[in-house]
Structure formats: C-alpha cells, structure tokens
Design a protein around this nucleic acid. Structure first.
Lengths: 346, 346
DNA sequence: TTTTGATGTGAAAACGTTTTCTCATAGAGT
DNA sequence: ACTCTATGAGAAAACGTTTTCACATCAAAA
C-alpha cells in the first residue's frame, strides 16, 4: 500500500486503447460502454469486442471525476459486531450491488465525533449517499452532509427528519408494546434492562416508550427499576443481578436487546429462577439466538434486513420519487415464545 | 441517485479556492494539505486556516486519478449474516480506518462467479488491495487481480498462495485437533456435521483433517458418517437427526460451525439425548452463542477479528516488509466447555 | 566575490474519463 | 434540385487534484 507498483505497462488497457483497437474515437468508445444509443450497430460491436479482448476495466476515479457520479454509497453503523447492524448492511449491500453501486462501510462505535470523522472521509471518497443509524448525530455531521449536498438516510428510526429520509420503526411504540404485552399478562412489577442510552436514541426511545405505557396504565413509572448495559451477554447477566437486588423484585423484565435478554435468562438459570414461572423476559431484535435459549425468547422483531434494502431503494430512486419515500415506518411484531407467561400468584 | 443535484455553487470549495484565500499557488496548497515538509511555516498556516474556513474537503476521485492512490480497500466475503465474517471485517475496517483507508464491502454468497463480478467492480473502483476469504477462487478472478496488479490477501486459510498473502489458520490441522480431542476422550464412533463443502475449502479442510486424524489413529474413516448443512441452526438440527439414523450411532459429533453445533444440541434436547452423557458435541468458531447453550459448547476458537486486523497490517505495510507477512498461520485453541465428555460405557 | 546547495514557491502538465460542440452524411419532404 | 432533419461520429474541453520542472532566494562554502 505504501508504494504502488505501477508496472511498466501493467495496470491495464485504457479507453484510448480500446478505441484504437476498435478503430474509432475515444468518444464513441465511451458512448458504447455507457450504453448511449446514438451509435451504430457495427461500431458498437467492434468496441465491445475490443474491450473484452483487452480485458478493459474502466477507471472509476476518472469517471467519477468527470461525471460527478461515483456509484459509491457510504454506511456508518455503530459496529459490525452486532448482528442487527451487520444484517442491515447485508440488505443494503445486496440491493445496491444489483445496481452496480458499491458500499463503503465504517463504524462509529456510538461516538458522535468518530462518526463525523467517518462522514468526512466518506464525503471525500465521493459517496453520493450516506446511510446512518438512528437520529442523533452531531450538528457538524448534518451541516457537512447538507453543505456538500450528500443525500442521506436514517435507519432504525422513524422520527421526522429535516433532511434526507428516515426508514425504520418507532422505538417508543415498540417499548410501549412490550409494556402493554407484559401488563396484559397481569404483571404489575416490571423492570427494564436497557442498552446504554447515551447518544443512542433507539435505546432511549424504547425505555421512554416502555415507561410511558406503564404510566398510561396507571402504574408509577418511577417504581420501575431500570439498569443500562452494553450489548453483551455478560452485561445482561449482571444487569439482571442488579434488578434482583431491588426492594420489590420485578416479575417481568423487558430487555432492549436479545443479547441482554439472553444474559438475563442465563442469570435466572444460574440462580434457579424459573423462566417464565417466576420471571418473564422479553427481548428485542429477534436475532437467531432468540430461538436458542431455553425457554425460547419472546421478543420484538426488528426488520433489519428490510431496512437495509429499503434504504437502498430510496437511494436508487429517481429524485421525483424520493419525496414519497422520505418517511417510512415499518411495523414491529411481537414474537411470543416461551420466556413469558402470566404473572405469578402473589 | 438518479440525478445528482449539483447546486449553483453548492458542492463546496475546491483547492483553487483555498489557494486563492491563502494567497498562494495551487501547488503550495496541495503540498500543505499533504503534509509535504518543503513549505514555509507561515504559508502552511495560511493554507490550513483557509481550508478550515472554507470547510474544504478534497475530491478523492481527482486525487486518486492523479496519484493512483485511492486509499480504498475491497473485501469480498461470503455474507455479513454470519458473525464470523462480520467480525473479521470489523477488525479489518477498524485498523484501516485508523490510517485513513476506507473499506468497500461486497458479498459473494459462496458463488465464485458472483465473486468475480464483485472483484471486477472493486478493481474498477480503484481498490488498492482486496481481501478474500479462503483459497478457492475462479481462475479469472486471480488473473484479474494479477493483471491489474491489485494486491490481495486470503483469510481463513494458511495455504501457500501464488500471489498476495495468506493470513489465517490451517483448517485441516483444526479438524485433526477436534478428532484427536474426541478420540482422547475414548470415543470410537465419531460423526461430523460439515458446512457445505462445495467451493468452500475451509469446510472441506476441516472435514479432511478430521477424517485424516481418525485414519491416523487406526480407525476407519469410511465408517464416519458425515452430513453437510448450510450455516443455519435449523440445518444443524436436521443434520443431527440424519446422523442418528445411521446403523452405529456416533457418540461424538464434530460440527464445522457453532451454528450447526447449536442446532445439533437443540435436536438432542428435543430427543432426550443428554449432552454430554450420551453425546459429545464440538463446535467451531467460538461465537458468543457457544456460551449460551446448555451445556455450554466445547469449540475451536477462530481468531476472526485478529485475521482482519492482521490483513490490514499486511495491506498497510511497506513493500519491503510484505515478504515477511506473506504467510501467517495463527494457532487454533480448543475451548473445552460442558458439551463434551468421556465416551459412554458400551 | 563567486559558487554551491538547500529551501521555498509557482506554472503547467498529466491522470482517464465524459460530455459538449461541431461536422459529415443520408434520407425525407418540398 | 434544394433544404431540412435525423443520425452517427470525432476533436477537444473539462473534471480537481498531484507532481514535475523550473526558478527564485538566501546562507554557507570556496
């Protein structure tokens, strides 16, 4: 990388070589390769043959420079280590690749300054659009994207946005749905293990929605013990331990992620707390691991892959259709499995 | 995306604007921004100030075109849906980002032709290096990379390579280690649930190594039942069912992935087969889920993240040091947990 | 004083495309 | 026979950088 060996005549054929071999001008060769219809049948074939024979690969930088279209899209996600984000990128990438668009990926590790840095790099690379996670971003990041006229789409959120598009779901509604589900089962003492809410509007939204619903149903949200934990099984386990230390132990716990929920179940196992008889647990995301715990995990399904492919659709859409797609709220289903049950008799 | 709105004077400041504001030449401005030391202190400061004031962001395409250095690296992995690959990319990306290098990601879904297509796209985008998974690739892909002088590194394998570098581990040795471990526990009837071996040298290598060790220890490898399954929990479950259908049921099964192993354990649970009393199970990868099964999974640890960051190191290394790094074999540890035990008395 | 070498700066070429003109040619309409 | 329009093709400009070359300036060495 430090020193690029640009061999004697290596590298490869350029468009001018193709044109020479096809016995036509640079302009014509370019037109053929770009599918411009204003060029004759015979000419077209000669160029195609020449290009194939030389193994011609266009120089994307030159093309991007001249045409201002890089066919590059950037994605900034918190981390690839969490399946929920990796899957979204998979959906995004798959759909874009079908259309010859490449994805540059970068990670922010939930740090807004790092995100700004990554965004600057993406703009520099010529990304035509940038996919972000959530709605909380530094003012500078937004200013950059708007000033440089870089289209962008927020995922995992359906909050109204000033610019770009939002394609996701309503985290507060989802949190409320979880509360409603547990309250309907007769639980009155709820608890929550939330993701770290700092700079994380999704984790915050789920928590807020959960507590709001508790209040709406006439209970005291202040009485709901809440512990935050990083998205690791072990933090879920420890968070569950903390929840069991409180005065009035909850009989049902909502976790901001299946990872946390899995840790919570693990703790219950270790302590002989029977799920769901003694304790109901609800997760979030519907990861593959939700079916691996015993009992299997009741959870809220997040359409990660779909958000990615819908973001791709938005990006690929012509400007005229973009308005329609600016705000897409996907439904969140609750998947009921074995980890939840009726509240124990007091 | 269809039509790039290149606003009246939007877009942003160019280098010439910076130079004008700093009252110097284009050349000087360029030198300052690239850290070229042959420029005066005052001049340097004026340029820096001007760039900051204008919010100047260089045009990567132009830079890449002229300098033939794109600061772009490509990665082609089977899928982002499997944590083992996502984690490798995370390691790769993290290390490269520290050095201002961006990663374009694309997926092949285990299809060599698709991989070729992605490789061509990456070359077109100006990727200076490409990270591949495994050692099995189409001849055309290799020809392309060699002809276009694109450096490349193979991961998840330590096989000798004709070009580029290999940074990974020996899948055959790993398979053999699994066999040795189970044989040492006294098991004589082994089975294996392998990943799909078509176009997958890693899955194939683990299988081959496993059988080779069985043979080396004086057993008949032909007698070892083998089922292949896609990397899904459900296929692991079904594969286990098939294995139980054979004449002499195995007492220990080696799975080519933790995902498969998890499915296998699930099947055992459902059928009342007690792990590890009646059945020992060994996984591969040491994913986070390996600690979630009951009992926890004995498995071989794959240094996914480390492979990614080492690949990045190779890519970033100056040409003089690359020779040293061309072949890196990482050790594979076996992590013994509860899913394995002594062979049952006959 | 003259030469040398180091240092800082600028003018202009170059990178490989796409795109805008411009110009033929030919067939259709008068 | 003459213009007009449609079609196909080429010459050259343009995209925004980096880099080469040339040229000052000035301190140190001769």
């Amino acid at each position: 990388m430090a020193d690029r060996a640009q061999g004697s005549e290596g590298g490869g054929a350029k468009l001018v070589d193709v044109a020479r071999l096809a016995n036509c001008s640079l302009a014509t060769a370019s037109r053929v390769l770009n599918g411009n219809p204003r060029v004759g049948q015979d000419e077209r074939e000669r160029v195609m043959r020449a290009a194939a024979e030389l193994g011609y690969v266009p120089n994307g930088s030159a093309r991007a420079l001249r045409s201002t279209r890089s066919r590059l899209v950037g994605a900034i996600i918190p981390t690839l280590d969490h399946a929920i984000y990796a899957t979204m990128v998979e959906g995004l990438q798959a759909r874009l690749a079908e259309n010859g668009v490449s994805v540059i990926i970068s990670t922010s590790h939930y740090d807004l300054d790092l995100e700004l840095e990554q965004a600057r790099l993406l703009v520099e690379r010529g990304a035509e659009s940038i996919v972000l996670v959530g709605s909380t971003h530094s003012a500078q990041t937004m200013a950059l994207l708007n000033q440089k006229r870089v289209d962008h789409v927020f995922t995992y959120t359906s909050a109204a946005v000033e610019s770009g598009a939002a394609i996701g779901f309503d985290n507060e509604k989802a949190g409320a749905a979880a509360a409603r589900f547990l309250l309907d089962l007769g639980h009155t003492r709820l608890g929550m293990i939330a993701g770290i809410t700092t700079n994380n509007d999704r984790a915050k939204g789920r928590l807020d929605g959960f507590l709001a619903e508790v209040a709406a149903r006439g209970h005291d949200p202040e009485a709901v013990p809440v512990v935050e934990g990083a998205y690791k099984v072990e933090s879920g386990r420890q968070a569950m331990r903390s929840l069991m230390d409180v005065q009035h132990r909850p009989t049902a716990v909502f976790c901001g992620s299946d990872i946390l929920a899995t840790g919570a179940i693990k703790y219950c196992h270790q302590q002989g707390i029977v799920v769901p008889k003694d304790m109901s647990i609800v997760g979030f995301d519907n990861l593959e691991i939700a079916e691996l715990t015993a009992p299997e995990l009741t959870t809220l399904e997040v359409p990660a892959r779909e958000m990615g492919s819908l973001a791709a659709n938005y990006i690929l859409a012509p400007a005229t259709q973009k308005r329609h797609l600016r705000q897409t709220e996907l439904p969140i289903r609750i998947i009921v499995r074995g980890s939840t049950g009726a509240a124990p008799r007091p």
